[in-house]
Design a protein around this nucleic acid. Structure first.
Length: 919
RNA sequence: GGGCGAUUGGCUCAGUGGUUAGAGCACGCGGUUCACAUCCGCGGGGUCACUGGUUCGAAUCCAGUAUCGCCCACCA
């Protein structure tokens, strides 16, 4: 808390105009000053008896700035966090940043290129120094953006995937996986990106359908008598990558292929490298594809690698890290892969060994990051054995211990985890966590989590000085996979880990369910023996108004700060949550944002009205009190009952993670109920000289009560404006100073009968307005109106009479006892407007048009339309009831409802017919 | 090749088998009502992609079809 004692917190002035940017900064500062974000902060009002609620933020990459997607995620996470906090749970929203190894290097390399530098020119140490500077420079920007969005995160617990605690977690996790036999080092086929100069995991390969070329090439068979190739005898192979010829070690055919049966066991000469290789039989070969003979390049093709292994063939590597030809001893060494391809094809054509060349539809693997065409190649790397880990992750969701929202993603989850392959975690990059593995000259492997490395070789005891650490770093997702617990201090048994782990909800985009969520689950289960979260909430992606994915290259990314400057963070938050469903992409455009801003403005003005409408008999700064029952009128009871109904509905939606439903409920309740009717009804009573002071006070307190409820309910979505407004209305003695730590409202009970009665009367008002509008009666022209109200509604009607008069522009408003009495004593009812609304009926007189036949015809036509409509509905209702199956099989309540409806409609129709005859 | 999603008013989207399917924007008419023109009142506009099925009852559940989109998939 600061030492600034505010003299009059009870009723600060609200500016007339709503300016989000004026509100948001100061409000955020108050939250910070009050120390309410941390579960154990000075301003926390959490009930320690309740279970903690924890959200660990998906850490954005330190590569620059946040985009709209981040803002959306933050909004959803913060919504859940604020809701839990208001419900009294000790609530931790832990923020963080991700070092994003490959993504960050990609960005930095771009910056360096503009300076004429490169990774290589700087060297590892200087490069990492530049990276540290770069990431430090982006941090404040990104944290500032989160703050503007309104993240109520515990900044004191801010974490970074490259900080010391994470580094320790990475080492310990890897050591444990190694000891448990789940991390192993082997030579295997990996996806190599020549642009990034690193291997990438299978997930980082983007399949790209492209039209390539399928070349058919003749290899000459060896005449074993001379040991030289026979110019006439050839075997034709098909390939899309002729440069890999240089690495060929065999030609394979199907064992039952009669065309080639005789050739198996003979040898063929590989051009350029002039190597003689065997013709082998293997049933991987598809006889129908190409020529039915396949060249085998074990070092540069996953299938060929497997074939080579089966047949004990060598695997010469012919591509260097930058995808130039190497190690072939030919003129082609040093050439780029595509240049080599061109020359090889040209040379083969010249020699007459190019049998065919045709366009070929194929799927290329490209690098997710650089878009380079990936080369499969052999590398000795570290892998995580995912089989056993995936089994446990599957068990978590199948058992329901972890729930995925929306649940359809469980199918995707199942499919991926049941077909999962081992995870290549070695990256030949510099920015990231170095793999804590050391190798001795004898090839022994030592893995240790000791920050100083091993003292001796674990196998042969050689001293550390003779050991060499693996130069590679971990896939950035390895440290991300530890995030839910490394952030809480794991592997140490810290108080935070004990208190806040397992966490509650993991919110993220569905696009990284495999990259991240599955790995957190797998690593979390193995390393902590518990599911790291009970719920996975997957957000949809934000797209531009045309439905395109936002991306920097397309130039359609929206800067959240620009949006916030324009319409406010509250509007942004509301807009990204309103009208959406989990896992469903949304298009984001101006109108949604403007609508959200208008809603905030509406709330602002409604609150200004309430503050300004305080009866003089209530002193400024009065402590909040509930209105006394006796002084409540139907309008007040209706307002309070509806507010309670909204609490119930919002609670149900919240429980189902239906946040779009939450905003819809609140938008309707606040705008269409509270403002349009509640406030309008209250205005009349507040200004009514005939009501007592106690009644006027009760009206005001009822407004305050409902407004207070709505501000609380809306706070998780629109935290700034609700906090500012709440600060200006009276509070209960038990309330804290700030809404953010105030209690979530509980339903106070509904009065169904009263809601129905008031609704019936409001329906009459609507009917009168409608009739007036259609008849083009000027707003200022109050019509003398007669009305028939059923006995049961009499008291409610009388209590609301002044409001009805004003809202329906109906004065004098005479109540008749029977419908027959309508128009009694009038010279003529010609031109009068007839309104039938449920059981209520009204006749609004228009003396000035009483003798105008055109007006009369218009009114008749209007009634006729209503009658036709009503007849249609009645017919449908009767048809339904005429169906014996419906009556006997549908639940009694439904049948009863249908009967009541039929009766109502029949009555309506009869009355409309009646009135139409009179006119 | 497999899987998933979408298809609802002119546009963008909600809709969790049960009265007459909703909202915002856009559109039309009318408004200087003392909270709000970022507003108020009233209105027009939908055979819920198509076909079949389950059910007393289907936008909703099932099967199939079409179009668009996404994800997964080692065939040269």
């Amino acid at each position: 808390m600061t030492d600034t004692a505010e003299p009059d917190t009870a009723e600060p002035q609200l500016p007339k105009a709503y300016r989000p940017t004026d509100v948001e900064g100061p409000v955020y500062d108050r939250w910070l000053a009050a120390d309410v974000f941390a579960p154990d902060g000075a301003g926390s009002t959490a009930d320690p008896a309740l279970p903690p609620f924890t959200i660990i933020q998906p850490p954005p990459n330190v590569t620059g700035s946040l985009h709209l997607g981040h803002a959306q995620r933050t909004a959803v996470e913060d919504l859940m966090v604020r809701h839990a906090r208001m419900r009294g749970h000790p609530t931790l929203f832990l923020p963080g940043l991700d070092h994003a190894s490959i993504a960050a290097q990609f960005v930095l390399d771009g910056i360096l290129a503009k300076e004429g530098e490169s990774r290589q020119s700087l060297g590892r140490e200087r490069y990492l120094e530049r990276m540290r500077e770069f990431s430090e420079s982006t941090k404040p920007i990104m944290l500032g953006q989160q703050r503007r969005v309104g993240a109520s995160a515990d900044w004191g617990r801010l974490r970074y995937t490259m900080d010391d605690v994470s580094a320790k977690a990475v080492r310990v996790a890897f050591e444990r996986l190694y000891r448990d036999g789940l991390a192993y080092r082997t030579e295997a086929m990996v996806n190599w990106c020549p642009g990034c100069r690193t291997s990438v995991s299978d997930l980082e390969v983007v399949s790209s359908p492209e039209t390539g070329t399928l070349w058919s090439i003749r290899y000459h068979l060896i005449d074993e008598s001379t040991g030289e190739p026979d110019p006439a005898e050839t075997i034709t192979v098909a390939t899309t990558r002729p440069e890999t010829i240089l690495g060929d070690v065999a030609v394979a055919v199907h064992p039952e292929d009669d065309r080639y049966r005789a050739l198996v066991g003979r040898r063929a000469r590989i051009p350029f490298v002039e190597r003689d290789v065997p013709i082998i039989a293997d049933d991987v070969v598809d006889r129908a594809f190409g020529t039915g003979a396949v060249k085998i390049t074990p070092a540069h093709d996953p299938d060929d690698y497997a074939t080579g292994k089966r047949h004990g063939l060598p695997a010469p590597t012919i591509l260097a890290d930058d995808a130039t030809i190497t190690n072939t001893g030919t003129q082609l060494d040093g050439l780029d892969r595509y240049e080599a391809r061109r020359r090889i094809v040209a040379e083969l054509a010249e020699r007459g060994d190019l049998a065919d060349e045709r366009p070929h539809e194929m799927v290329l693997g490209r690098c997710q990051r650089s878009n380079d065409v990936l080369e499969p190649r052999l590398k000795t790397q570290w892998f995580i054995r995912t089989g056993p880990l995936a089994t446990r992750a599957l068990d978590a969701t199948r058992s329901g211990r972890t729930r995925i929202v929306p649940d359809r993603f469980e199918k995707t989850w199942e499919h991926w985890l049941t077909n999962i392959r081992d995870w290549n975690v070695s990256r030949q990059l510099w920015w990231g966590h170095r793999i804590p593995a050391w190798y001795c000259p004898d090839g022994h492997v030592t893995v240790t989590s000791d920050p100083d490395g091993p003292t001796t070789c674990q196998v042969c005891g050689r001293p550390a000085a003779e050991l060499q650490q693996d130069p590679d770093i971990f896939d950035t997702w390895f440290s991300s996979g530890l995030w839910p617990f490394s952030t809480l201090g794991w592997p140490d048994d810290t108080p935070d880990f004990r208190t806040y782990y397992p966490t509650s909800v993991m919110e993220t985009g569905y696009d990284i369910i495999f990259f991240w969520v599955a790995r957190m689950m797998m690593l979390g289960l193995h390393l902590t023996d518990r599911e790291p979260f009970h719920t996975i909430y997957l957000s949809g992606l934000i797209r531009d108004p045309e439905g395109q994915k936002m991306s920097k290259t397309k130039g359609n990314v929206v800067d959240p700060l620009g949006v916030i400057d324009e319409t406010g963070a509250d509007a942004l938050r509301f807009a990204v949550i309103h009208g959406t469903a989990p896992g469903q992409d949304q298009r984001f455009g101006r109108t949604k944002l403007e609508n959200a801003r208008n809603f905030a403005n509406k709330l602002w003005n409604a609150t200004r009205f309430v503050i300004g409408a305080r009866p003089e008999t209530i002193p400024s700064g009065a402590e909040r009190r509930l209105p006394s029952e006796a002084d409540l009128g139907p309008a007040e009871r209706w307002i309070l009952s509806r507010a309670s109904a909204t609490v119930e509905a919002v609670d149900a939606a919240m429980a189902g993670y239906a946040f779009g439903e939450v905003t819809r409920l609140l938008y309707d309740a606040i705008w269409n109920e509270f403002c349009d009717w509640g406030v309008e009804l209250a205005k009349v009573r507040l200004a009514d000289g005939s009501s007592t002071a106690a009644e006027r006070e009760a009206t005001w307190w009822a407004l305050v009560e409902a407004l207070d409820t709505y501000l609380r309910l809306l706070h998780p979505v629109m935290p700034f404006v609700t906090e500012a407004l709440w600060g200006s209305i009276p509070h209960r003695a038990s309330d804290p100073d700030l809404l953010i730590v105030a209690r979530w409202p509980a339903p106070t009970g509904r009065d169904d009968r009263l809601e129905r009665d008031v609704d019936a009367i409001l329906e009459l008002v609507r009917g009168l307005r409608n009739a007036r509008a259609e008849a083009q009666v000027e707003a200022g022209n109050w019509l003398a109106t007669e009305v028939v109200v059923p006995q049961a509604l009499g008291a409610t009607f009388e209590a609301l009479r002044p409001a009805i008069e004003r809202l329906a522009r109906a004065r004098p408003l005479d109540r008749r006892l029977t419908r027959e009495a309508l128009g009694e004593g009038r010279a003529s009812t010609d031109g009068a407007l007839t309104v039938i609304a449920g059981e209520l009926e009204a006749l609004a007189h228009r003396p000035e048009t009483a003798s105008d036949p055109a007006a009369r015809d218009l009114e008749r036509a209007r009634l006729q339309r209503e009658l036709d409509d009503a007849r249609g509905w009645l017919e449908a209702a009767r048809a339904r009831l005429a169906n014996d199956a419906f009556v006997s099989k549908a639940p009694p309540a439904v049948v009863e409802g249908a009967r009541a409806r039929e009766a109502d409609l029949a009555d309506q129709v009869a009355r409309l017919e009646d009135r139409l005859q009179d006119r």
